[in-house]
């Protein structure tokens, strides 16, 4: 059972990380980064590191997403297409 959940979490990590890299909408990428951090904290919890899981959930999923969204509000939402 735990193997299946672990596999799903790892696959979700890969998908959300690829979406962050590929996506041109920076706001979607920031939200996807929040999902990535949440899945990473779940992974830490599965690997029996609850300390790191709490820190990752608080900082990664909460604070970093807010900081990125505040930063995006100061610039434009869409990534520029270069060459």
């Amino acid at each position: 059972m735990i193997d299946i959940i672990h596999g799903i979490v790892l696959a979700g990590l890969l998908v959300s990380a690829l979406y962050i890299v590929r996506c041109r909408d920076l706001l979607s990428a920031a939200i996807s980064f929040g999902i990535f951090s949440f899945l990473l904290s779940l992974e830490f919890y599965i690997l029996q590191a609850p300390d790191v899981a709490i820190a990752e959930a608080g900082i990664g999923a909460g604070l970093t997403t807010a900081i990125y969204i505040v930063a995006i509000r100061g610039t434009t939402r869409w990534e520029e297409v270069s060459g």
Binding site: D3, G7, L10, L14, L18, I46
Partner: peptide
Amino acid sequence: VVLVLCAGMLAASVGLEYG
């Protein structure tokens, strides 16, 4: 590359025992 990464992560996670 994605397939190789997926396979590597899954193989590494299956081979080890938790705890």
